[in-house]
Design a protein around this nucleic acid. Structure first.
Ligand SMILES: [Mn+2]
Ligand SMILES: [Mn+2]
Ligand SMILES: [Zn+2]
Ligand SMILES: [Zn+2]
Lengths: 130, 130
DNA sequence: ATGAATCTAGTAATGATTCCTATTATTTCA
DNA sequence: TGAAATAATAGGAATCATTACTAGATTCAT
């Protein structure tokens, strides 16, 4: 099914790409409503799903009840903060060794892929802990 | 809070330890009802939670909507089958290299830990694919 | 044995997500 | 350019895994 060009879809992807916070659908809904006050939550859900299928955004199925979304589709990893729950990026260049190892593992075990989530303290919470 | 010894709790952990299937709470509920027909689903949920907190079982928060539970608390990894959804064990001895690397990563990045889920075809589905 | 602590069954509530539908917007192509 | 066809929308209902509530039962420590 071809994706039409709608205002709703354009604003959703635009606003998501402005963020570094890996919002849930309902968090993004609040933000998008500043531009499109009449948009419905269902539209945000549906478009995030379609955009993820099309490879335009990432759908993150991490621990926690809610799915999160990421406008950055470049390869990187995620850490969940044990204190505040925020998702922080861990860029692949810091992790090239583990990335190589995981790819080797995928080959060796003849599996399709993997999902890796790191757990720890985000920068903000680490600073506050002093 | 100290855990009492109840029939319900004993049967839940016993039946879970007999399985290699990583059941959801409701799947285990069906099995436990063969021994205790009057048990409630809430009791299964509550006990699995308490037993996981006590380190007697593992709570697996993998992809998919439902949590799964594992009576085997020895270190090992899990693979979700893309065809049937089953969770299959990947024992740590097969994965000692990746295990070492992940532990190094945890040290290097000063994080607490990680969650790794492999994705692929389980043995049964791989056999059926020929 | 007894009082306090813990647990249970049954049921209601919660909350994230998906589904439904009448209406509106977008695309296609004659 | 202008229907007809296709796709998307808002708003609301439905789903369903999980958690919360509660009165009564069980288990525990002494
Ligand atoms: Mn990210
Ligand atoms: Mn296992
Ligand atoms: Zn934090
Ligand atoms: Zn399978």
């Amino acid at each position: 099914m071809k994706l039409s060009n709608t205002n709703q879809r354009r604003i959703i992807i635009e606003e998501l790409r402005n963020l570094y916070t890996h919002p849930t659908a309902d968090e993004l809904y609040v933000i998008v409503r500043e531009k499109l006050p009449q948009i419905s939550l269902g539209t945000v859900y549906r478009n995030l799903e379609l955009l993820a299928d099309a490879g335009k955004v990432l759908k993150l199925e991490l621990s926690g009840k809610q799915k999160r979304f990421d406008g950055n589709v470049n390869k990187h990893f995620h850490m969940r903060c044990r204190a505040c729950g925020r998702i922080e990026d861990m860029h692949a260049d810091k992790m090239s060794e583990i990335d190589r190892n995981l790819n080797d593992l995928v080959d060796k075990l003849k599996v399709d892929g993997y999902r890796l989530e790191l757990n720890g303290l985000c920068n903000k919470c680490r600073a506050e802990e002093e």
